[in-house]
Computed example of a mutant assay.
Amino acid sequence: MMLLALAVCKKFAGAATPSTSAQVGVSGSPNPGFSPINGTVYLGIPIDGSSVDTKIDVQISGTDYPYSSRFYCPNSYPIDWNVAGYSTFTTTLGVPDNASGATGATITMTFSDQNGKVLSVNKTAIGQPATVHIPLSGVDRLVISCNRTANNGGGYNFVALGNAAVS
C-alpha cells in the first residue's frame, strides 16, 4: 500500500499546478473571481469598481432583499461583475428606504456588456423600484454605471440591486 502511494506521488510530482483562477483557497471556498455555474447565484464582489457592499440586507419600498448589492450613485467608475457562462441577470433596482439625500432624486442605471453595448437602461426613485431582467447571451462582464439627478442639494445617495442574481 505504501509503495502504491509513493508511486502516485512520484507520478504527479511533475504535474502542472492549476491556474490561479481555478485554485481553491485554504478555506475550501472558490477564488472570488471564479463562480461555478450552479443554478442561481447572488452577485458577489465585483471584478472592477469600488465601494460596493455585497450580499447585504436592504429594504426597498418596504420589501426586504437580503442578498443585495449597494453603492453610491453617481459612481465615479463603472462597476462590473464576471457573468460569463450565465444566461440571465435579474434584480430589483431601487433606492433603499433609509438612504439619505434620496428625496427628489432620480437614479438612471445603465447596464452594458464588456464592449460598451447597452443592455438595459432603468430609472428608479425612492418608492419606485424597477424590475430588471437582462439576457446575458454573449456577455462576459456586466458593467453598471449610475447617474443621479436631483434638486435637493445632495450630491450622492445609495442605490441598491435587490437580490441581484445570475442564473
Rank of each mutant, 00 (worst) to 15 (best):
residue 146 C to F: 10
residue 75 N to K: 09
residue 115 N to W: 12
residue 60 I to N: 00
residue 101 G to P: 02
residue 54 T to A: 06
residue 12 F to H: 14
residue 83 V to C: 09
residue 7 A to T: 05
residue 7 A to S: 10
residue 119 L to A: 06
residue 28 G to H: 08
residue 1 M to I: 11
residue 98 N to A: 06
residue 103 T to I: 04
residue 25 G to Q: 08
residue 167 S to V: 12
residue 139 V to E: 03
residue 67 Y to E: 12
residue 97 D to L: 01
residue 11 K to A: 14
residue 148 R to W: 12
residue 51 S to Q: 15
residue 17 T to D: 07
residue 100 S to R: 02
residue 106 T to Y: 01
residue 63 T to H: 03
residue 60 I to L: 05
residue 29 S to F: 14
residue 110 T to Q: 14
residue 74 P to S: 11
residue 1 M to S: 11
residue 48 D to S: 15
residue 67 Y to P: 00
residue 64 D to H: 09
residue 118 V to T: 15
residue 149 T to Y: 05
residue 17 T to E: 12
residue 38 N to I: 11
residue 88 T to R: 15
residue 81 W to Y: 15
residue 109 M to Q: 10
residue 113 D to C: 12
residue 121 V to K: 15
residue 72 Y to T: 14
residue 81 W to F: 14
residue 86 Y to P: 00
residue 96 P to W: 00
residue 26 V to P: 02
residue 163 N to P: 01
residue 88 T to V: 13
residue 35 S to I: 15
residue 116 G to Y: 15
residue 11 K to N: 07
residue 109 M to G: 00
residue 12 F to K: 06
residue 7 A to N: 07
residue 133 H to A: 09
residue 40 T to A: 14
residue 58 V to K: 03
residue 138 G to P: 00
residue 147 N to P: 05
residue 27 S to Q: 10
residue 120 S to Q: 15
residue 13 A to C: 07
residue 39 G to D: 05
residue 87 S to D: 15
residue 66 P to G: 05
residue 8 V to C: 09
residue 153 G to H: 10
residue 1 M to K: 10
residue 86 Y to W: 11
residue 51 S to E: 14
residue 122 N to S: 14
residue 53 D to E: 10
residue 81 W to D: 08
residue 146 C to Y: 11
residue 60 I to G: 00
residue 111 F to H: 08
residue 73 C to Q: 06
residue 71 F to P: 04
residue 159 V to M: 05
residue 77 Y to T: 15
residue 160 A to I: 01
residue 52 V to Y: 02
residue 70 R to Y: 04
residue 73 C to T: 12
residue 136 L to V: 03
residue 102 A to T: 03
residue 135 P to T: 11
residue 30 P to D: 06
residue 8 V to L: 13
residue 60 I to C: 01
residue 107 I to F: 01
residue 8 V to G: 03
residue 57 D to P: 00
residue 74 P to Q: 07
residue 142 L to F: 09
